[in-house]
Simulated assay, not measured.
Amino acid sequence: MNYILILALVILMVLVLVSLIRGIVAFMKSTKIDLETGESQDASDMQLMQNKMMFARIKYQALAIVVVGVLLALAN
């Protein structure tokens, strides 16, 4: 059981990292579009992507905390 939870924790940590990187890339693209055009009409898609990735990161972090809590409960 512990091995399954540890594997789930590692997968969740990777998902947190991927969503963080994708959010940073979307932020950099939206900033680049704003600087080049001076307008933010194309940046709205990137801003939506940033928000989506932020929510995904928070969701995965919460699930990882739950898995750590279960692991600690099983350890006792």
Rank of each mutant, 00 (worst) to 15 (best):
Tyr3Arg: 14
Ile4Gly: 07
Leu5Cys: 04
Ile6Glu: 11
Ile6Asp: 10
Ala8Gly: 02
Leu9Asn: 06
Val10Pro: 01
Val10Tyr: 05
Ile11His: 02
Leu15Gln: 12
Val16Ala: 13
Val18Arg: 08
Ile21Met: 11
Ile21Pro: 07
Arg22Met: 14
Gly23Met: 07
Ile24His: 07
Ile24Asp: 08
Val25Leu: 12
Ala26Leu: 04
Ala26Gly: 07
Phe27Ala: 15
Phe27Thr: 15
Met28Asp: 05
Lys29Leu: 09
Lys29Gln: 06
Ser30His: 02
Thr31Asn: 13
Thr31Asp: 11
Ile33Gln: 08
Ile33Met: 08
Thr37Gly: 05
Glu39Asp: 14
Glu39Pro: 04
Glu39Ser: 15
Ser40Pro: 01
Gln41Leu: 09
Ala43Gly: 15
Met46Asn: 11
Met49Asn: 10
Gln50Thr: 11
Gln50Lys: 12
Asn51Thr: 15
Lys52Cys: 00
Met54Pro: 00
Met54Ile: 14
Phe55Ala: 15
Ala56Phe: 00
Ile58Asp: 02
Ile58Tyr: 01
Lys59Asn: 05
Lys59Leu: 12
Lys59Tyr: 03
Tyr60Ile: 00
Gln61Asn: 08
Gln61Glu: 11
Gln61Tyr: 06
Ala62Cys: 11
Ala64Phe: 00
Ile65Ser: 08
Val67Trp: 01
Val68Gln: 03
Gly69Asp: 02
Val70Arg: 01
Leu74Asn: 06
Asn76Arg: 05
